[in-house]
């Protein structure tokens, strides 16, 4: 059984939240699923909220409805270099205080419009002290798009993906294309 399977099973047993056993109950525990990162449940919640601001629920589900934050954390944990991981976690750590300054209160308590403005503003930060916040948000946006578009929900319910894309046609008028079939 690999780590991922072990965690899946653990997640089933514990109802999704896995905490590191520790004698210090004064602090929030980190999520052990992401062993290269140090992510607390409240940070995962914040990340979910950022992702959901990037891709909100409309007539279809939004990023938080399908837990895109889990995909983002898996990718950052497993596929990114250590320095990029550090940028990501520092950006996540510092985002809340940036958000309070820019949006007047905690991100989770902001209206959607304010959240969008805060994230857009955060993405354009260029000064050296805040560059990691901008980079964190860029990574989060990229991974939110990837995780959402290649999610089970999208690929089965919204834009069904077919393993069999059909016969090749090398001369198709764009004006005749069915826009619903984006997943080949």
């Amino acid at each position: 059984m690999n780590r991922r399977e072990a965690l899946r099973n653990l997640a089933i047993i514990t109802g999704g939240i896995i905490l590191v056993p520790s004698c210090n109950f004064s602090q929030e525990e980190v999520l052990v699923a992401y062993d290269n990162l140090s992510i607390k449940p409240s940070q995962a919640e914040l990340l979910a909220s950022i992702a959901d601001t990037i891709i909100p629920a409309t007539d279809t589900k939004g990023a938080a409805d399908i837990s895109v934050q889990d995909f983002i954390l898996v990718m950052v944990n497993d596929c990114m270099e250590q320095d990029a991981q550090e940028t990501f976690t520092q950006g996540l750590n510092d985002f809340e205080s940036f958000s309070k300054n820019a949006g007047g209160k905690a991100f989770l308590k902001q209206e959607r419009g304010t959240r969008e403005r805060v994230i857009t503003q955060g993405m354009s930060l260029e000064d050296e002290d805040n560059l990691h916040i901008s980079e964190f948000l860029q990574i989060t946006k990229r991974m939110t798009i990837q995780g959402f578009m290649a999610s089970e929900y999208m690929m089965t319910e919204v834009r069904p993906y077919s393993l069999i894309p059909g016969t090749y046609n090398g001369e198709v008028l764009i004006s005749n294309i069915d826009k619903e079939s984006i997943n080949g």
Binding site: T53, I54, I55, P56, T58, E116, K141, I174, I182
Partner: peptide, 23 residues
């Protein structure tokens, strides 16, 4: 292959992602 305009965030971004029409 068609692709989406991925600028911005929010409902407009989502609408664009769901309807790739840039060639």
């Amino acid at each position: 292959q068609p692709y989406s305009d991925q600028r911005g965030i929010g409902a407009a971004l989502k609408e664009s992602l769901l309807n790739p029409d840039q060639y």
